[in-house]
Write a protein that binds this DNA or RNA. Structure first.
Lengths: 225, 225
DNA sequence: TCTTAAAGTTTGTCGAACCTAACTATTGAA
DNA sequence: TTCAATAGTTAGGTTCGACAAACTTTAAGA
């Protein structure tokens, strides 16, 4: 039974390592709001426990065992977010912080009850895929909005959930999961992306666009719906 | 912000002190599963923080400040129990342990959302009164079943929630909140109480009877319902 | 009153998880 | 190649909450 703190370190490494990039002390420290010596100490411990491999001065990488912990936490986090959103009608910009705490303390039994209550869902309110109970981590759907070509239309399938401010910004734009967006133009030199969303035009910055993933509509014949 | 551990000590003292009885080191230690020196140390700290008053060798008593913490926890606990019971349909013998953890970590905002979602309820699934947000602790309803006179009929309004085994025992008897029980006979020498419950007769031990509270039906004229 | 068992406290330790200060390794620019 | 600047680690300290061992107080019975 890893402690709350250990779980948080593993989760952070998981988030930072993306597709198997080594993760560095400094980045873990910055991301968690602790000082580097705390990270060094904990990393040594996590390596001894087999959660990650550590090459001194060269960063860390989660082992299978560590990844399993991280994916389980993600499953918990996303199910809790969906549960709070569905039952208490809490908006998507307010569920993350509660879930952040609850993911560490809710029993497996309760999580599975929630999973069944929600109808064994596949996605959380931000469109993130919910990992399986077996630790199977499905791929993200779609592609980032900033990689969509001009003239293409996409359906919003996923948005980043870490920054409530960003989610409120999207809400203000009336952009939600399922929204259709047409990319009209990429402004040059890192400028904004010009979009059409539900008959309104808008410009969206690159940083924001990168946090939105869309499914490109394939033009396979002409079939509505 | 008291720590989890501090909250647990305060809660334990609250439960043990009943109607302002001094609570002793030994009893706190036994109830919490820690050793006496741990209690001595923590009690000193709690007294310094103003949560309780401590006369060395003579036990402790919560201050107003300590009682407030305890009652807030009770409110959280009972709302969480009711929430789990209502939304996830978790039976009354399985909600206590999850609530025990969650009461310490769920934000006030979330608790108030739950409170409103549940329709600002007055009682939890075991019939316990839910304290007000203002720290107001309502009295228990009814009287313990073992104090009911022979021949009297009562309506079950509250049962102890600490022991899941006991709750499963009640479930087996088909005894629930709202059940009507007729006390037929008190067996002598601490023997069982003979009851009639929904056209079945049963004997219930004194220890169990003390954990069940009933409202005595007053014979005010003859009015059904 | 004296004695002793039970209850309570004090003292010193330990592990977790953090910190600061001081030291070491890596790296990229001069 | 050398040497800062940056990154990482080690050493040593703090706080929190638990513990065991040793000591003190209380209270009950001889």
């Amino acid at each position: 039974m890893p402690s709350r703190s250990i779980e948080d370190y593993i989760k952070t490494v998981y988030e930072l390592q993306g597709k198997n990039q080594r993760v560095f002390t400094k980045d873990i420290a910055r991301s968690m709001g602790v000082k580097m010596p705390s990270v060094s100490g904990m990393v040594k411990h996590l390596a001894a426990e087999g959660y990650l491999s550590h090459k001194p001065y060269k960063g860390v990488l989660l082992t299978k065992r560590g990844q399993r912990i991280a994916v389980d936490l993600l499953r918990r986090h996303r199910l809790i977010e969906l549960f709070l959103n569905k039952t208490l009608d809490i908006p998507w910009d307010e569920i993350h912080e509660d879930a952040e705490v609850l993911e560490h303390v809710i029993s497996n039994k309760l999580i599975e009850r929630i999973f069944n209550f929600l109808g064994r869902p596949k996605f959380d309110p931000h469109g993130h895929t919910i990992p399986g109970k077996d630790g199977n981590m499905p791929l993200s759907r779609g592609i980032p909005l900033d990689q969509v070509n001009e003239g293409e239309t996409g359906c919003v399938v996923e948005v980043s959930d870490h920054d409530p401010e960003f989610l409120r910004y999207l809400t203000g734009l009336k952009l939600k999961i399922g929204s259709e967006v047409l990319v009209k133009e990429h402004a040059p030199f890192g400028g904004p992306i010009m979009l059409k969303l539900e008959r309104q035009s808008l410009a969206i910055g690159l940083d924001a666009a990168r946090r939105i993933r869309v499914d490109i509509k394939k033009k396979v014949g002409k079939r509505s719906n």
